[in-house]
Amino acid sequence: MRAGQLRCATWNVHRGKGSDGRVDPARTLNAIDRELAPRGLDVLALQEADEECRPHARIFHVDQIAESTGLSYIHEPALRWGPQSDGFLGTILFLSPALTRTHTDVIDLPGHCHRGAVSVETLFEGRSVRIMSTHLSLFQPLRIVQMRIIGQYLRRRPQMQTLLLGDLNEWRPWGGLMFDRRLVGTRLRGPVRPTFPSAQPLLPLDRILTEAPGEVQQIRAVTSAEMTAASDHLPLEAVVTVP
């Protein structure tokens, strides 16, 4: 990896429910250990990693994921939905120790299903970079509203390169209004790869995006028998340059 680059991955782990319909959190952890940990990640974002309904209870051993990947689990109590959760509405972030955290937030997003985003501002090799992860609505008009709220949040925070990754539930490669600069205040972009359904991926629901053109590279869906079995989504991996 060259200086100024972050290797990132995002994965909707479907609460440990595999493509065969069987719930097996240990299988998910094994897939992370075998397929993602060896990639030398700097950022790992998981969605649907807590239970869906209140109290959004924990499912996985986050300390095992941190040990396997060499990343830091960043969710102190203020970044969790509640005391029984590991993340915020199922979103959990793990970051490299090389990323020094300077500010953290959680953002409530409206919808029939409660949604949210996690935002972490960091210093990386002297550069400021914001890492955000979220899981957006299945309903397009709600996704537009949710992205507008994220854009309003970004306007209130210091200007720096922003990296957005997660299950954005946008099936169209071009993304439509939800990624429009006039709505978000910045143009988030990146190549797309189909990640859903994992057994025969057709839709690019999962994204890794940033403002700078061409700065999301080497993007790929991580395909293997372990990944296909462990969730209905495939993980998405990319290298993001922080100029």
Results as ranks from 00 to 15, higher is better:
Met1Phe: 10
Arg2Ile: 03
Ala3Tyr: 08
Gly4Thr: 06
Leu6Cys: 12
Cys8Gln: 05
Ala9Asp: 05
Thr10Gln: 06
Asn12Tyr: 08
His14Pro: 04
His14Asp: 06
His14Ile: 04
Arg15Ile: 02
Gly16Trp: 00
Lys17Asn: 00
Asp24Ala: 05
Ala26Gly: 00
Ala31Tyr: 01
Arg34Ser: 11
Glu35Asn: 02
Gly40Gln: 13
Leu41Arg: 06
Leu44Thr: 08
Leu46Arg: 03
Glu48Gly: 02
Ala57Asp: 10
Ile59His: 02
Val62Ala: 13
Ile65Lys: 11
Thr69Ser: 12
Gly70Arg: 04
Tyr73Thr: 05
Glu76Ala: 13
Ala78Trp: 07
Leu79His: 15
Phe88Thr: 09
Phe88Arg: 11
Leu89Met: 06
Leu89Tyr: 15
Gly90Asp: 08
Leu93Val: 02
Leu93His: 05
Leu95Met: 09
Arg101Glu: 15
Asp105Tyr: 14
Asp105Asn: 15
His114Asp: 09
Arg115Leu: 07
Glu121His: 06
Leu123Thr: 14
Arg127Phe: 14
Arg127Met: 12
Arg127Tyr: 13
Arg127Asn: 07
Ile131Ala: 02
His135Asp: 14
Leu136Ser: 08
Leu142Tyr: 10
Leu142Val: 12
Met147Asp: 08
Ile150Gln: 03
Ile150Pro: 06
Ile150Phe: 03
Gly151Thr: 13
Gln152Met: 04
Arg155Cys: 12
Arg155Thr: 13
Met160Phe: 13
Gly175Ala: 09
Leu177His: 05
Phe179Cys: 15
Gly185Ala: 10
Gly185Asn: 12
Leu188Asn: 04
Pro191Tyr: 07
Pro197Ile: 03
Pro204Arg: 01
Pro204Gly: 05
Leu209Gly: 00
Glu211Cys: 05
Ala212Trp: 05
Gly214Phe: 06
Gly214Ala: 10
Ser224Glu: 07
Glu226Asp: 15
Thr228Met: 04
Leu236Pro: 10
Ala238Gly: 02
Pro243Ala: 14
